[in-house]
Computed example of a mutant assay.
Amino acid sequence: MSDMNTPSDSRPPKQPRTGLKTTGARKAASKSNRSRAREFALQALYQHLVGGNDAESIDAFTRNLAGFHKADSVHYDALLHGSIANAAAMDALITPLLDRKMAEISPIEHAVMWIGVYEFQHCLDVPWRVVLNECIELAKEFGGTDGHKYVNAVLNGLAPKLRAVEVAADKAAGGGGSAVAPSGPAAD
């Protein structure tokens, strides 16, 4: 019997449980209800940007997707309907910070920036650094290779304008002015 392999000999080494995938994105189990709402809102806004679908049709479709019941539906509603309703105003804020035409921006990064701008303006209960971090995470998970860097640059440029008091207080408290978002899960 000593010639038999023990179960421990045939198993791969245990990996630490960090809540992150090998890509650096958070695993589904470690996501908050609001993070899930942002993901569903991103998918819905993508449908709007790419397909030109109206909010009501997108909303009906998205609510039937697997896992939607785990999302904060109130936050999802606010992000989807608020972003579509305020799209032109949000694009007017984003455009001066772009190094190319809006039409050349990936629809994923565009939708993520809408989510960030909307939350900066309307979700004051979410700290600006959390908004930034959540948007970077969305861009990492769903966007192009370096799309998260672009999203970070644009939203980091808008934060002092849209959350001036909060950013200034953060800077004064030693939090620094530049927001390179932490890589761990956000605190909302």
Rank of each mutant, 00 (worst) to 15 (best):
N5S: 01
T6C: 07
P7F: 08
D9F: 07
P12W: 08
K14W: 07
Q15C: 01
T23M: 05
G24Q: 12
K27V: 01
K27T: 00
R34Q: 11
R36D: 04
R36N: 00
R38F: 05
F40K: 09
A44K: 01
L45Q: 11
L45C: 06
H48F: 06
V50H: 12
G52Y: 03
D54F: 03
D54T: 03
E56A: 09
E56M: 02
E56R: 08
S57E: 14
D59K: 13
D59I: 02
D59W: 14
A60C: 04
F68D: 12
K70Q: 12
A71K: 03
V74P: 04
V74L: 07
D77H: 05
H81W: 08
H81D: 09
A85W: 07
N86C: 11
N86R: 04
A87W: 12
M90I: 12
D91Q: 06
I94L: 01
T95S: 03
P96T: 00
L97Q: 13
R100H: 14
M102N: 02
A103P: 06
A103K: 01
E104Y: 00
I105E: 00
I108D: 00
E109M: 06
H110A: 01
H110M: 10
H110G: 08
M113L: 15
W114R: 14
Y118L: 14
F120K: 12
Q121T: 15
H122G: 03
L124M: 15
L124S: 15
W128R: 15
W128T: 15
L132H: 15
N133Q: 15
N133D: 09
N133L: 08
I136N: 13
G144M: 10
G147S: 05
A153D: 13
V154A: 10
N156D: 12
N156W: 12
L158W: 14
A159T: 04
K161V: 08
V165K: 06
A168N: 12
A169E: 15
A172N: 02
A179C: 06
V180I: 08
A181T: 13
P185Y: 12
